[in-house]
Design a protein around this nucleic acid. Structure first.
Lengths: 223, 223
DNA sequence: AAAGATAATTAGACAAGTCTAAAAATAAAA
DNA sequence: TTTTATTTTTAGACTTGTCTAATTATCTTT
């Protein structure tokens, strides 16, 4: 039986941000990191940390960092599950493009209905990943982390399937489309320019492109 | 091109209540009517009427009633459209029962995305009525009002298809199920007890039941 | 280790949406 | 028509989530 935790949409958004910034809840996160991710001021974050602390989803002593609790992690994964299931719905059933789903899912994810999410999951055929390649936690908050590496961290010569993207803003995703980069394509890292970190890629063994370090830092390939 | 009207979810809920209470925006509505429908205090309603007035969706002079404007009516119909489309989705795609849809749809209706609603409508096959038999306004806010009459207002001997219900609370809908009353069934008004207004009905020419006046006042048959 | 820089928190303010209690306007009744 | 009852509005307060400005804590650098 889950304990009664009642987070407002705003609290849910902060918790999600903390979860993401802490790499699955394992790292400590700073107030400023949170404020820049949330586009709010540090003062607002401080206020919010008090509330989240009172609700036992984070641990926070003033001026030290913030760490997500087991309870917080499970709550965060539950919200992420909803977000990603809705994204799949939008693409699979309503034929949204992958750069159109994030914003709408940000709203849909806050709707609270156990039945709704159970049935949605079923309706979608129990999908395992969202349209950006990110894994969907199950109802118990278990998440299937496949081994993957950022292009910027991979060795020259490395080869792998494009499995997910870090950034999900429309502009970035549209740019990937234009470059011919989409989930599932086979990528080979041909060369890296030491000067600016840009990378030469071979897509599906037939198309050669050069991408900036900024792009390389936001695209994962299977390890 | 629609003018920029920006209503908060709370404002949308009040506007919807006013629309419903005024029978399609034609009647004047009192502060107390609104407060009892919204389960808020009259003082809160007064505050809200000022805001809605400022946004030109109602006309309101203190101590006189409130009347919805053309703009307000169109906004209300748009919200109702979203609510009813989501209800259809929940029943048709996620196999919700008709008594489970209202509460969730109350939240879904506030999500703002033109594309989402267009695509949802398409995905559902452009439905014309929701699971309670209420007509779904089109994207221009046009609504298809079929002639219908409450059982409590029909003459003894009248016969018609059950086309919609006024009350949509789970308890009421579950009670209708138990009585064997569902949308589409053929109803004949056999007799009415003058004493308490209860009504004797013949369902689909084979089942005889007696329903209270309270039930009769909440079920419509085709005229 | 002291000074300056950076980061985080507190203090005080504001808007939205709600409330209770009091006042004012309208409606009903004597 | 005057009084009483009802309805509606105003006044003032509280909560949530945000802000700016000021303060305090920690970190860095010499």
């Amino acid at each position: 039986m889950s304990v009664a935790i009642d987070l407002s949409p705003a609290e849910e958004n902060y918790l999600k941000a903390i979860y993401h910034l802490s790499a699955d809840g394992s790292l400590e996160v700073s107030t400023n990191d949170i404020s820049s991710r949330m586009n709010t001021r540090a003062a607002s974050v401080s206020d919010m940390l008090k509330k989240l602390s009172a609700k036992k989803v984070i641990e926070h002593q003033p001026y030290m960092g913030v760490k997500i609790t087991a309870l917080g992690k499970s709550e965060a994964l539950h919200i992420i599950r909803k977000h990603r299931l809705w994204e799949v719905f939008l693409v699979q059933k309503l034929h949204f493009h992958w750069d159109q789903v994030h914003e709408v899912a940000e709203h849909l994810e806050h709707i609270r209905s156990r039945l709704l999410i159970e049935r949605l999951d079923e309706h979608l055929g129990f999908p395992k990943v969202d349209p950006h390649g990110d894994p969907i936690p199950d109802a118990q908050g278990r998440i299937n982390l496949r081994p993957h590496v950022l292009i910027s961290d991979a060795e020259v010569g490395a080869e792998g399937t494009m499995v997910s993207v870090l950034e999900t803003s429309p502009l970035f995703l549209q740019y990937l489309d234009k470059l011919g980069l989409r989930l599932g394509c086979l990528l080979k890292l041909q060369d890296r320019v030491t000067f600016d970190g840009s990378v030469e890629l071979l897509i599906d063994q037939n198309k050669q492109i050069i991408v900036s370090n900024e792009v390389a830092r936001n695209v994962y390939i299977s390890a």
